[in-house]
Design a protein around this nucleic acid. Structure first.
Length: 664
DNA sequence: TGCCGAGGCCTTTTT
DNA sequence: GGCCTCGGCA
């Protein structure tokens, strides 16, 4: 493909041609944003800007991958030096280059939320504090806010300072960093070492940021640091699609950007190329209820003979799933649509269950991305923990997870003694274990000594084996055999060996991912640590485009940036969207929930189906539900109530149906 | 002291 | 429906 073949409207063209100086692109949903960004990069390359000087920041790894593929097809060039990365992955890159300056050893671990909670729990135990899980999660969120400077210490929370300090100390001992560190540590590094800052400024003279509305204040500070000198920074965003404020996203960054770079050029992309007029009108009407937004109105020249938005009220979540499955099946038959043209969007992961059941029983292939993904399954986490410990034996959190899995006779009591011992010496558990093992006079019971020796031998043995080049996955398979994990699974699921088999299959699949990653020529010098870093930063299981030919089921959050010909928006009910907990936190959150609803609607190209159940299974019981108040914001003429076919035989029933509609 | 079974509880969204 | 915790047993 050639750049000149791409037809751009005047605003898009201006965006693509403006290569120097600060640029702000306000890009409405479906306005061809990705095309503009990739064309702009291609244009830079055509103008002789070296790949190595370009840094493009994206929000997800998936977006990064897609962007790279599109630039590749536009330019036909090999992109060995172009950096397209998420903020977090870029942080890892800097950490890998400068771990010494930051006080880490080379094989550092990256802790995800679960590891973080475990580490916090350990730290609390050390201080003889006991917290319930929800409290720990609250503390974890608070500490994240403090670390990223969203919240200062004050006398209402100062009591938690010791725990915070203890947590940080543990992380140092474990040679581990958390997600926030990946952003914060590079900033500190650059602020403290002007030579390093300058190195990065000179290296990346052209910076682009996608999904700018979802950057946090601290991420903005990072961008500003990097871009200040050459001022070639282009931010692309849409304040109406800001849906990550709970994670620190601050769309006020758009205003800050205008302040810091008063010379910037601002371009608005308001022409929508994605959706039908009906869908667009509905989206515009919904988002118009938000205050405090940059004014823009999307418009389209899409052809007519459009379908209205269809709304149905299934009796319960099972009916909802069945409705979606049968509609997909019939559209596929009647309109020859392919599975991957369908997207099913949900507000929370827990809503997926009933839909998945329905898709499965209708034999409709699907992928569920995000959420409790594959990598979170207990058996996969176990194996990952082994790999983490082999890579970084000081990683106590992961060592604790596997030290007695499968059973090695190292029980609770023994562990407590070991942990106390390591605390006394301010060293990691593993160091304590090795020194105990080699000191002759330690009073270890034979049983305990054997258990410890077993794990230490295993780690030392596999540390070497993994270092041998080119055999990551093969060594992984050997590891799984060595620890007898299959035996353990059988034992654990003695009553149901189908489960054991299923879990074992998952591990085989996991090893297969590893093998494919290892063999991919794009991954230069694959190593155990690189693989581990990668899988902690990738939640979405992007299994090398296995998704083709499957229906896409995902949360609304995960759908950002994607589009589908047909979208089903399920669970559009009171307390689900807007979510009750979001509103309970702060009633003002209704605006973000509305943006979420807006993002969901604008994913649809041609057809949009909305479902609201009247009852829904929650945990054990059936609870009553009612349609979301957001539905009232869609103009009546754009949306049509639709009966679920088999059910309405009786006119009376239809009458009742209409009586139940919220706007009647 | 380690292991196993019973009972309670829950995650809103993700790098 | 599954994971974690606690209490009793070997």
């Amino acid at each position: 493909m050639d750049l000149s073949e791409i037809r751009l409207n005047p605003e898009q063209k201006l965006a693509v041609d403006t290569l120097n100086g600060p640029l702000l692109i306000i890009a409405g949903a479906g306005s061809g944003k990705t095309g503009v960004i990739t064309s702009r990069i291609a244009n830079m390359l055509n103008h002789g800007i070296p790949q190595s000087q370009i840094l493009a920041m994206t929000f997800t790894n998936k977006a990064a991958k897609e962007m790279e593929a599109r630039v590749k097809s536009l330019t036909g060039k090999k992109l060995t030096n172009l950096t397209i990365s998420t903020f977090h992955a870029f942080g890892v890159k800097i950490l890998r280059e400068h771990y010494v300056d930051m006080g880490f050893r080379p094989n550092f671990s990256i802790y995800d939320t679960g590891d973080k909670i475990s580490c916090l729990k350990e730290a609390a135990r050390e201080l003889k504090l006991k917290y319930e899980n929800p409290e720990l999660m609250e503390l974890a969120n608070m500490f994240a806010a403090i670390k990223t400077e969203r919240q200062p210490w004050d006398n209402t929370i100062d009591q938690h300072k010791p725990l915070y300090k203890e947590y940080e100390e543990h992380m140092r001992i474990y040679n581990a960093v958390d997600f926030d560190d990946l952003i914060v540590l590079p900033i500190h590094l650059m602020e403290e070492h002007s030579d390093i800052l300058e190195k990065y400024q000179n290296r990346f003279r052209y910076i682009m940021v996608d999904e700018f509305q979802d950057t946090s204040s601290i991420q903005y500070r990072f961008l500003h640091l990097m871009a200040e000198k050459y001022r070639n920074i282009c931010c692309v965003g849409d304040d109406d699609q800001s849906i990550y404020s709970w994670r620190g996203a601050n769309y006020g960054n758009i205003l800050q950007f205008e302040k810091d770079y008063p010379e910037l050029i601002e371009i608005k992309l308001e022409r929508n190329y994605r959706s039908t007029g009906t869908i667009l009108k509905a989206a515009n009407a919904v988002i118009a209820n938000n205050t405090n937004r940059k004014l823009k109105e999307l418009w389209t020249e899409m052809s007519h003979n459009e379908m209205t938005i269809k709304h149905t009220l299934p009796d319960d979540d099972k009916d909802e799933g069945d409705f979606i499955a049968s509609t997909i099946a019939s559209l596929r038959m009647k309109e020859h649509m392919k599975y991957d043209q369908f997207g099913i969007l949900i507000r929370t992961n827990s809503l997926s269950k009933a839909i998945e059941d329905a898709l499965l029983s209708s034999n409709i292939p699907y992928t569920m991305s995000g959420g409790t993904s594959f990598f979170q399954r207990a058996e996969i986490r176990d194996i990952i923990s082994y790999l983490r410990v082999i890579n970084n034996p000081d990683d106590d959190v992961n060592l604790l997870r596997i030290i007695n899995t499968p059973r090695r006779g190292i029980g609770k009591r023994a562990l407590e003694t070991l942990i106390d011992e390591s605390q006394r010496h301010s060293q990691s558990l593993y160091s304590t274990m090795t020194s105990l093992l080699f000191s002759a006079d330690s009073e270890l019971s034979t049983k305990l000594r054997n258990g410890i020796a077993e794990i230490v031998d295993l780690v030392e043995d596999f540390k070497d084996r993994f270092k041998e080049a080119g055999a990551l996955a093969a060594t992984g398979v050997e590891l799984v055999e060595e620890i007898n994990y299959w035996e353990y699974l059988l034992q654990e699921h003695a009553s149901n060996d189908k489960v054991a088999k299923w879990k074992n299959d998952n591990i085989i699949m996991f090893m297969d991912f590893m093998s494919r990653w290892e063999k991919n020529p794009d991954n230069l010098e694959p190593s155990l640590q690189k693989w581990l870093n990668r899988i902690t930063l990738v939640t979405r299981d992007d299994t090398d485009d296995n998704e083709a030919g499957k229906v896409n089921l995902m949360t609304i959050h995960a759908s950002k940036g994607l589009e589908f010909d047909v979208v089903f928006l399920a669970g559009v009910e009171k307390d689900i969207i807007p979510h009750e907990r979001a509103i309970a936190e702060d009633p003002a959150n209704v605006e973000e929930e509305r943006r979420l609803f807006y993002v969901a609607i604008t994913r649809a190209r041609k057809k949009l189906y909305i479902t609201s159940c009247l009852k829904r299974r929650q945990m054990r019981e059936m609870i009553d539900s009612s349609p979301s108040p957001f539905l009232d914001e869609i103009p009546l003429e754009l949306m049509e109530a639709m009966e679920i076919e088999e059910e309405v035989e009786d006119p009376k029933e239809a009458e009742q149906y209409f009586a139940r509609l919220p706007w009647k």
